[in-house]
């Protein structure tokens, strides 16, 4: 099947000016040669730690910034080279949900203005009343009532604001949404409400979703497929269940073992990471993770490993950027399901 989004060797480098004459000598390679396909209707989780480039990748896919090189094929057409005007029709098809519900809404605009604004530019044929009706419908879809219309963002809680942010993204009826850490600023119980909202709109609207987050458990809940990023590159990409039950890259294993789980009883063994994080200005040669990897070999420094099918019968859609296929890595979960807490009715 033809993917909705296909990014090919995508790079986003930020030059750092150095010296008196401001000659470029170094660059932060925030995204460095990413290949990623997203199918229509799929939810892809993009996980990584700070500095991994996950947010930059999301923003570059949205063409918020022009990539340094590489292409983003959106529904068969490369949009990486398009101008502001050329991108306009695509703006209607892809939208973004932001992390901070306090900064993503204009504090001086009412909810109604924030919501109807996108339609001014994408559906100018609609009358003001029609725009308002659309906004009311969308507001209801995210669990708010029309009475929110005349209010300003500061009158709402964080969770409600995030719902408004989602509603604004939905106003132009996009097919693709990039959600950049949309629940990490929220309280635990509110986080669950917003995650459920994402699941439900994804289902009812058939959205394609790139869910950028640092939280593996959140990704495990919402994503069909997970891509793990480290220092601007994708280390592993796999169907969600496979990533948790049979990780193929040592970095994934480390991440999974580090994430604390709300379970009493014996603690899981932790896979320690060696040394200190490398400077993004001067990443290691070869595999960027090798300086922290417990399984690194001399040949890991030679050449940057490309994503390749994961070894040992892990399935056709499981890819890893690790040279070694002789590793037996610790999974985060084994296949036996565990008890859940039930709230009796």
């Amino acid at each position: 099947m033809k993917p909705l989004i296909d990014c090919i060797d995508l790079k986003q480098h930020y030059p750092i000016r150095h010296g008196l004459l401001g000659r470029q000598s170094l660059a932060v390679k925030a995204v460095d040669g990413v290949n990623l396909q997203i199918q229509r209707g799929e939810v892809v989780g993009l996980v990584g730690e700070s500095g991994s480039g996950k947010s930059t990748l999301g923003r570059t896919l949205m063409m918020m910034e022009k990539p340094t090189s590489g292409s983003v094929i959106y529904d068969g057409k490369d949009i990486a080279g398009l101008t502001h005007a050329g991108l306009h029709p695509y703006r209607r098809r892809m939208q973004m949900v932001f992390q901070d519900p306090f900064s993503s809404l204009n504090p001086r605009m009412t909810v109604e203005d924030s919501l109807t604004m996108p339609l001014r530019f994408h559906a100018p044929e609609l009358s003001a009343a029609q725009r308002r009706d659309e906004a009311a419908e969308t507001l209801e879809r995210v669990g708010l009532s029309r009475s929110a219309f005349e209010r300003f963002p500061h009158e709402f809680s964080g969770g409600q604001r995030q719902r408004i942010g989602i509603a604004r993204a939905l106003m132009v009826k996009p097919e693709f949404i990039v959600a950049d850490e949309p629940v990490s600023a929220l309280d635990v119980s509110v986080q669950a409400q917003v995650l459920n909202l994402f699941s439900s709109i994804r289902q009812t609207l058939g959205l394609t979703l790139l869910f950028v987050t640092h939280d593996l458990a959140v990704v495990g809940h919402i994503a069909d497929r997970v891509a793990v990023m480290y220092l601007g590159q994708i280390m592993e990409i796999a169907p969600t269940r496979a990533l948790f039950t049979a990780p193929a890259h040592p970095y994934t294993e480390t991440l999974l073992s580090a994430a604390p789980q709300p379970k009493a009883g014996p603690r899981r063994a932790r896979i320690a990471m060696r040394g200190e994080p490398p400077s993004p200005l001067n990443p290691p040669s070869g595999c960027v993770f090798r300086t922290r990897c417990a399984h690194a070999l001399p040949e890991c420094a030679q050449e940057r490993p490309a994503l390749r099918p994961a070894p040992a019968g892990r399935g056709a859609s499981h890819f890893t950027a690790c040279l070694r296929d002789d590793l037996s890595l610790t999974p985060a979960v084994t296949e036996t399901p565990s008890p859940r807490i039930r709230t009796p009715v």
């Binding site: 635990v188 699941s199 399901p337 859940r340």
Partner: peptide, 20 residues
């Protein structure tokens, strides 16, 4: 609160909405 935390055990398996 505990029910609203997504669990690793359920990763990639549709267990329906999280508790809220």
């Amino acid at each position: 609160l505990l029910a609203s935390v997504p669990r690793f055990e359920d990763a990639g398996q549709s267990k329906g909405p999280l508790g809220t």
